[in-house]
Computed example of a mutant assay.
Amino acid sequence: MTTLGVIGGTGWLGGALLRPALAKGFVDPADLILSSRSGKTAGFEGWPGIRFVTDNVMLAAQSDIVILSVRPEDLDTLDLDLSGKLVISVMARVSAAALLARFKSRRIIRAMPNACAEQGLSFTPWLSTPDATDADADFADSFFACSGKTTRLSTESELDYFTALTGSGPAFIAAFADTMIRDAIENGVAPDIADAAVRQLFLGAGTWLAGASETPADTVRIFTEYGGTTAAGLTAMLSADIAGPISKGLAAAKDKAARG
């Protein structure tokens, strides 16, 4: 029996990752220990076999695998010896070397899921240190697959970039949607209708893009070549250098991830 301990497991990201894994039977409630400073258990009422603790030292002593799901700013509050255990971190800005130095484990996996995990729609890139075993890697990939799609990376610089590209979850898309909603309101559309219309647009567009055989670039080209109203809008956006602000945003997020 392998016991999984999750520090910060009742937080928003810990819960978003664990509930799909529990629902799919990948994690047995009897093999799961969650810790939180508040001692809260909300969100896990459907799995009464889970053990809850407020003491991270106790959690570590009883766990074979420890997932760190806390804010990077809270890392200094964790004084644990996790040597010999598999340590999985979902924290941005904390390198594998920093994790090894603090927790004394050489079997480390870093991953960057996003806020869509609870819906099974996260894209989760991850990487492992050389001492992580094949079984460690299989566990991590299967665990994160419960929450969406996964891919294994080879360098932390790649993970820093994905922290910006996909770790942002819906936030960057929400900024674009908010701009469209505000524009619709300024053009006389009632706020509730503007909000509903743009939400439905992004739901439909995301679903369509996920299953389309064409690349996004192909879609832009097809609509631009058609020469209609969508082409007029796309041409104006491209002429205004829509790519520039997006690239700057990704660069800023990547730099933040790399600086720690």
Rank of each mutant, 00 (worst) to 15 (best):
M1G: 14
A16W: 05
R19D: 01
D31A: 13
K40S: 13
T41L: 08
E45I: 10
W47I: 05
G49M: 03
I50Q: 08
R51V: 13
V53D: 10
V57G: 14
S69L: 00
V70I: 15
P72V: 04
D76K: 09
S83V: 10
L86K: 06
S89A: 06
M91D: 02
V94R: 07
V94K: 08
A96E: 07
A97W: 07
A97L: 12
L100Q: 12
A101L: 05
R107N: 03
R110C: 12
P113V: 02
P113E: 03
A117V: 02
E118P: 01
Q119Y: 06
G120W: 02
L121N: 06
F123N: 07
T124S: 07
W126R: 02
A132C: 05
A132V: 02
D141F: 05
A145W: 00
S154P: 02
T155P: 12
S157A: 15
D160C: 14
Y161G: 07
G167L: 01
G167C: 05
P170N: 03
F172L: 10
V189F: 03
D192M: 09
A197L: 14
Q200S: 12
G204R: 08
A210P: 00
G211P: 11
G211V: 14
S213G: 14
T215K: 04
R221W: 01
I222C: 01
Y226W: 07
G227P: 13
G227C: 09
G227A: 04
T235E: 13
T235G: 14
M237D: 03
K248P: 04
G249V: 03
L250F: 04
A251K: 15
A251I: 09
D255A: 15
R259W: 11
G260F: 05
